[in-house]
Design a binder for these strands. Structure first.
Length: 298
DNA sequence: TAGGCCATCTGGTCCT
DNA sequence: AGGACCAGATGGCCTA
């Protein structure tokens, strides 16, 4: 909650347009095929490059790595202009350099947008329970999203389980159990989440670690994920066996050893027996306190 | 070499 | 009108 949003919005690394075109741009990202923005974009191979030397120099001055063609479709699109918006009419009237400047501006915005999106994705990866390490390939975007989703589901189930246990421990005299030691206000809403499958009244003891098959499948219509894969990302989405093992392990036991206390039984450990803001379990799942998974090949 | 993943470009659409 | 968002296309890099 802390950083992501602000991180994204105020991210200093949000590349300035100038930087964006600098060759040495650190891509960091795995693939990062973009080596220096030269982007020999054959995408626009439609039209031959006809940048004037003047334009090139202007673009270079703007920090732009002048690519062969950027003029291209400005003409084609304008000529096609089936949906002739006013802006397009304006574009018709724009000179080629102006069009190119506009195109560069739009491209820059799009790059920045995607860059911010990737930053957010990295932030998500950071808090995901899988082995982070130099030798462990980071999760792909799709794997990150799937794992995050399942992780949230599992945490939700765990929370429900915990609340149920707490209510059992404290007897029926106060179903609402709302200890002062519950900073997170976890007891604030004693009722289960709306529509949550883990309703205390109906749900059997579902192991928070094991795939909550019925739960997840019931609550995730159309997910297309099997019971197991509802917890872990499909192996096919993992980039390497090590990453797959790490992520699978993370998904299977994302909470570390401590979380195994939750096999549906009261936890005997001192931490849990203290009237116990279970909160420490939950909050302890953050990336910071998450134990590096055993597979942390470091 | 094929397939997966990614970054980028681009045009279209929607929103403010 | 300008910006954000989205999806398609394309090419590069990496791994099995």
């Amino acid at each position: 909650m802390d950083s992501d949003a602000s991180l994204v919005s105020s991210r200093p690394s949000s590349p300035e347009p100038d930087e964006l075109f600098l060759p040495g741009r650190n891509k960091g990202g795995g693939g990062g095929g973009f080596t220096g923005g030269t982007v020999s974009s054959s995408t626009q191979s439609d039209s031959p490059p006809e940048l004037s030397a003047e334009l090139r120099s202007a673009m270079s001055a703007a920090g732009v790595v002048v690519v062969d063609k950027l003029g291209f479709k400005s003409s084609s699109s304008s000529s096609s202009s089936s949906s002739s918006s006013s802006s397009k009419k304006d574009k018709k009237q724009m000179t080629e350099p102006e069009l190119q400047q506009l195109r560069l501006k739009i491209n820059s915005r799009e790059r920045k947008r995607m860059h911010d999106l990737n930053i957010a994705m990295d932030g998500l990866r950071e808090v995901m329970p899988y082995a982070h390490g130099p030798s462990v390939r980071k999760l792909s975007k799709i794997a990150t999203l799937l794992l995050a989703r399942n992780y949230i589901l599992m945490l939700t189930n765990s929370l429900e389980e915990m609340k149920r246990l707490v209510s059992e421990i404290y007897g029926g005299h106060h179903a609402g159990f709302h200890p002062a030691a519950c900073p997170g206000g976890m007891g604030a809403h004693s009722a289960p989440l709306p529509g949550h499958p883990g309703h205390p009244a109906s749900h059997p003891v579902h192991h928070p670690i094991l795939p909550p098959a019925a739960v997840s499948s019931a609550s995730l219509p159309g997910s297309g994920l099997s019971a197991v894969s509802s917890i872990r990302p499909p192996h096919g989405l993992l980039k390497s066996p090590s990453a797959a093992a790490a992520a699978a392990a993370a998904a299977a036991a994302p909470l570390g050893s401590g979380f195994q206390h939750w096999g549906g039984m009261p936890c005997p450990c001192s931490m849990c027996q203290v009237s116990a803001p279970p909160h420490h379990h939950v909050s302890g799942m953050g990336a910071a306190s998450l134990p590096r998974l055993a597979t942390d090949t470091k």
